[in-house]
Simulated scan of single mutants.
Amino acid sequence: MNAKFLTGCKLMTALLLVIATTGCSLLPRGQETGPEPATPSLSPVVEVSEDYYGSIPPYKPNQTRGMLSDTKYRIDFSHLELGLMEFARETFPTSEYLFQEGQQIKQEQVTEWIAQEKAGAANGQKKKGILVHVLEHDYLSKEKDHLGQLEGMVLGLSLSPEYQDATGQDKMYTTQELQAKGQQLAARIVQSIRVNTPTVPMLVLLYQVPEANSSLVPGHFIMSGTVNANEASVSKWQPIDEEFYLFPSSDVESKYAQQSLQYDKLMRQVQSYFGEYVGMTGVGRFMGGKMTELTITATAEYDSRTEVLQFTQFAAGSINQLFDKSVHINLYVQSMNKPLAIYIRPATGEPYMHIYRQ
C-alpha cells in the first residue's frame, strides 16, 4: 500500500487543479460537441513529483457532491478523495488510466440507499444509520482504440460508528463491527450498481467518518474490497490499518510515545529560537502502526518576510534532525489570516520550500 500522499493539504489541492486543467485532454465517445465529433487525443502531461492521474475536459462535477450540506457529519473531503486515488493506483495505474469524477451513481440512488439502511433497524433500536455518503471515482482507458471508455470504478462508502441502543444511549461500533456492517452494506450497493455496469472492475473502500468532537482529525479508511470484471459481488476484503492523531495530545503520547517526544522537542526548539509565541499543531498519519506522514501548521504574526524565511529554514532543519526520512512532512507557516510559507519533505525525492511574497 502506498502511504505517501498529502492528507488534507492545500498544496495537493493546488497540484490536482494543475493536473486537472493541464493534463491529458480528450473527448469521450458519445459526448462530442459541434457539428463534427472531435477525434480523441492526448495532450502532454505536466511533470510533477507526485503520481497523479490525467483528466478529460470539460470538467464534470461528481453526481453526489453536495449531499452532506444538510447533515451533521464532517468529512475531510481532501483525505477522502485523495485517499480513493491513492488506493486506486494499485488497481488502475496512472500510466494506463485517466480520471473522471463519478458519473454513474446519482444523488437519488444514494438517498435511497441511506433511507433503506436506516429502515433496517433492529427491534427496539433507534436507527441512526451507518451510511453517511457514497463517493464515486471513474477511471477511463488511455489506450488509443478505447480512449475515454469507462474501465474502472472506485466507491468510497462513508460510515458513521455512532448508534443508539434500545434505551436511547449513544454507543460506538468497534472497528471490527463497523467493518462487518460495511461489508453487508457494500454487497447491496454493488449489486445495485451492477445493473448498469456489469463488466467494469470496481474497488470498494470503507471510510469511517470522525467522531463529532474530533474537528481537527480526519476520518480514516478501514477496509478495501475488490469486485472483478463480470462479478456481481466483492470477491476479496482486506482490512486497512490507518489512524490519525493530533499533536500534541494525550492520545498520541500514550500510544506513540517516541513520536510525541520528537514533536515536543521540535516545539521547544522553535520556541527557544524565536522567543515570541508560535502556535504549532500537527496531525500524524499512521499506517500499520508506523507514522508515514506529519502535517504541521505553525501560526504566528511576523514583522517581515525575512523573519518568515528564517523561521521556515530553522523549523525545516529541526524537522530533518528529529523525524525519520521515511516520514512525509508538510509544514505550513501562516498568520491569522493568510499563508506565509510552506515546506514539503517527501519520503522520496527532494524537499521543497516556498515563501509567499504577498
Results as ranks from 00 to 15, higher is better:
190 V>K: 00
194 R>M: 09
180 A>N: 09
188 R>E: 13
183 Q>G: 09
196 N>V: 08
169 Q>A: 14
180 A>K: 09
178 L>I: 08
198 P>E: 07
167 T>H: 03
179 Q>H: 11
188 R>N: 15
188 R>S: 15
177 E>Y: 01
175 T>K: 13
197 T>C: 10
170 D>E: 07
190 V>Y: 01
179 Q>V: 10
184 Q>L: 14
181 K>G: 11
177 E>Q: 14
197 T>K: 12
173 Y>A: 13
179 Q>F: 00
186 A>Y: 01
185 L>A: 07
176 Q>I: 10
171 K>E: 15
191 Q>V: 09
173 Y>S: 15
188 R>G: 15
168 G>S: 05
176 Q>P: 04
169 Q>I: 11
194 R>N: 11
180 A>S: 11
188 R>T: 13
182 G>C: 07
186 A>T: 02
192 S>A: 15
181 K>W: 02
176 Q>G: 07
183 Q>K: 06
194 R>F: 02
185 L>M: 08
198 P>R: 02
167 T>W: 07
174 T>P: 07
196 N>P: 00
192 S>T: 02
185 L>V: 00
166 A>H: 11
185 L>F: 05
187 A>Y: 04
188 R>V: 13
175 T>V: 15
186 A>F: 08
184 Q>W: 09
187 A>W: 01
171 K>V: 08
190 V>W: 00
177 E>C: 02
171 K>W: 10
194 R>K: 12
176 Q>C: 00
177 E>S: 06
185 L>Y: 01
179 Q>I: 11
171 K>T: 05
195 V>N: 07
196 N>R: 06
179 Q>W: 01
191 Q>A: 11
189 I>V: 06
187 A>F: 01
168 G>V: 02
183 Q>R: 04
179 Q>K: 11
176 Q>Y: 00
189 I>G: 01
165 D>M: 11
192 S>I: 02
197 T>A: 14
176 Q>D: 12
179 Q>C: 13
178 L>D: 05
169 Q>L: 12
195 V>W: 03
195 V>T: 09
172 M>S: 15
190 V>L: 08
184 Q>I: 10
173 Y>F: 12
197 T>L: 07
196 N>L: 10
172 M>H: 13
